[in-house]
């Protein structure tokens, strides 16, 4: 077991900081939704390159943050890699880099190991569930449609009730005005109008 861990750690340092396509492949086949590297990375094109959020564009300070994050082989309270987004950093912080590398062969276990308590975007859908659904864990406007709908409906129950009351009252008022006009017209036609 110790040897296995050592090999994983050595491999992790030796490997380039590429995105792990095993997770992307699993999420796409499980959810039926296309996803890209922006699920966990800052750049949708992954960490390698010279674009914003990619290794080639990092400043000296960001490189130091990257190196600190790369050393997080075991779970740690805070991971702040500049090439990862908040969800990616949460994954490394909760699982540790070593476990993430191990999970590349079992990407279906990521959600269970991450747990369903975190909701970074506050849309009511746990991050682990968003991973399974192939939706973005950092956008409160993005989630599995039915889950999002029921959560928002519960969250906005008061506003929905007020909207119903406002619509009903406005309709009642408008209909009463129309009926009044109609009665007035009828009275005018029959010569009963004052």
């Amino acid at each position: 077991m110790k040897l296995h861990r050592t090999v994983v750690v050595l491999l992790a340092f030796a490997m380039p900081a590429g995105a792990h396509h095993e997770f992307q492949t699993f999420v796409q086949s499980h959810s039926g939704r296309p996803v890209n590297c922006a699920l966990c990375h800052t750049s949708p094109d992954g960490p390698e390159g010279t674009g914003a959020g990619q290794i080639g564009s990092l400043t000296e300070g960001e490189r130091e943050r990257l190196n600190r994050a790369r050393a997080a082989f075991e779970p740690s309270p805070v991971v702040d890699s500049p090439i990862l987004n908040d969800f990616g950093n949460l994954l490394v912080a909760r699982l540790g880099k070593r476990r993430i590398l191990e999970l590349r062969s079992k990407p279906e276990l990521v959600a269970a190991e991450l747990g369903f308590a975190n909701d970074l975007d506050g849309d009511g859908i746990p991050d682990a569930q968003e991973y399974l659904d192939g939706t973005h864990p950092l956008s409160r406007h993005h989630g599995a449609p039915l889950r999002l709908f029921w959560h928002e409906l519960r969250a906005h129950a008061f506003q929905v009730a007020m909207l119903f009351a406002a619509t009903a009252i406005t309709l009642y008022g408008l209909i009463s005005v129309l009926r009044g006009f109609a009665l007035r017209l009828q009275a005018h036609e029959s010569g009963d109008a004052p």
Partner: peptide
Amino acid sequence: FFVVCVVAMCLPFDALLPYPL
């Protein structure tokens, strides 16, 4: 009006599309 407002309030239209798009 009531139905479309509730749907607009509770379900962002973007949620129907994959996020990379």
